[in-house]
Structures are given as C-alpha cells and as structure tokens.
Amino acid sequence: MTRDLRLGVNIDHVATLRNARGGALPDPVRAALLAEAAGADGITAHLREDRRHIRDEDIAGLMAAIKTPLNFEMAATAEMQKIALSHRPHAACIVPERREERTTEGGLDVAGDEARLAEFIAPLRDAGIRVSMFIAADPQQIAAAARIGAPVIELHTGAYCDYHAEGEMEAHKAELSRLIAGAKQAADLGLEVHMGHGLNYETVTPIAAIKEVRELNIGHFLIGEAVFTGLSAAIGEMRRLMEEARA
C-alpha cells in the first residue's frame, strides 16, 4: 500500500532497553517486525559510533528479516560508509553525532561542509542507497543539501517539540512556521521532505498536515508509549492522527 504520508518507526530504544541489562532481550528485530505488522511503512535504526543502542548484528538482522525499507541513520564517517555499502539499505540518513549527546542535537551543517559531504554521499548514491540529510529548517542548509545531490532531507523537529513541552507557545508557533517554509523551499528545489525528532501524539498533527512532507520518523515516544499500551496500539494511534491530519 502506497501512502501519501509514510511512518518510519525508529527501534533504537528497544536496543537501549536490551543493553541496559545485557543479553539479547528485548530484541530490536522482533520490535521491527511488530512495527511492520502494525502499519509502519519503514524501519529506522541509528548505528552510533559508540554502539550505545543499535549494534552491528542488529543491522544485519534487520536487513535479513524486515520486508519494509530500512532507513540506516549514520554519521558521515568512513566506518559507517563502509557498513552502509556492505548492507545496502534502502536509505541512509546522514546525521551529526557527538559522543557526549544523549540524542541527536540539531541538524547537520551541510553548508559548512559541502565539499566533503558531496564526496561522502556519492558512493552511497552510486550503490542505489537513497541518501537523506538530517538538517534544521534553515534556508542555507536546505539549499546546500540540494547542491550536493542529496535527493531527500529530513527536517529536525526537536526545537518545535521542545518549545511545546516547555509551554513556550510563541516560539513553538514560530518554529512550526520555519518548518512549513523549509518544506516548501525543499520541495521547490526538487527534494523529498521528511521530518522527525521528538514527535508525539500532541505535536504530530500540525507536522503531518504540511502537504510537502512525505515521511515522518518517530521512535522514542512510540517505544515509551508501548510500555503502557503495546507497540501495535501506539503505532496504530500515531497512524490515525497522521491520516486524520492529512485528510
């Protein structure tokens, strides 16, 4: 089934829970299969340099088991490029990565690293991997992503969600306006637009309503909500809200 707005489910934090105790459970691959059955259009997994959640064997397991596309989140390093070229996932989302951060903070500085990133993504594109750049809704960054030949961008919704959580509603509305403008700019440049980071039931509707957006990637909230309602129910409710907003 082809949807106007796809949902990618990030299963990183199933691995976080597993790694907190050690051993093999809960299994991120099992979570990915449950997500597929519940209506996810794709699975996202971030293999960090320090392997704090997803591990190399998880990527191999996902590639072997899932039928929906794998979106492989990765830093722009030689090690990650080699792993991506080895597995050849459907998509590779290039993200900034710092060891001290708890989660991905802010977007990639494509404008400040244009030549290196253009060279870095070329082998991925040549291998048939759909490359996405994870960036802020900044006109310079969007234009730079188009110039280096990335067919997809994922706009960082973290600030939009943080302002909502903090009750800073004017800043929240301003950030939404930036995301709307960024999505339009990107679409006008021929880029496919995705969004993600920090989205939940309360914040997803205005983002899902942006007509240029083709995919949302949501993870931490869904895995947390699954503790209380189960993963299938959490994904089902998110899909319902997305489709209601789109309609």
Rank of each mutant, 00 (worst) to 15 (best):
G230T: 12
A45E: 07
G167Y: 10
A159F: 10
H46D: 08
V213Q: 08
G107Q: 02
A35C: 11
H87M: 13
A31M: 03
I66A: 09
P206D: 09
A247D: 08
I121V: 12
G106H: 12
V227P: 00
M133P: 01
L25S: 14
T157W: 02
H220G: 05
N19S: 12
K67W: 01
E212C: 00
G236F: 08
L176M: 12
A208V: 12
K173R: 15
A76R: 04
T103S: 15
N200Y: 01
D12M: 10
A20W: 11
I218V: 15
E212M: 00
A226Q: 10
R51Y: 07
T103I: 12
G112T: 06
A245S: 07
H194C: 00
V95M: 06
G149Q: 02
A24W: 11
E212F: 02
R130P: 00
A38E: 10
D50Y: 07
V29K: 05
Q141L: 05
G39C: 07
E244D: 14
A32R: 03
H87K: 13
A144E: 01
A174D: 14
T104N: 11
A143S: 13
H164C: 09
T157V: 04
T205G: 02
A144I: 04
M195A: 15
R6D: 05
M169T: 11
E202Q: 14
L33F: 04
H87F: 15
D188R: 06
I83Y: 13
R6V: 03
L176Y: 09
V227E: 02
A127T: 04
V152Q: 02
I129A: 05
A245G: 03
E244T: 15
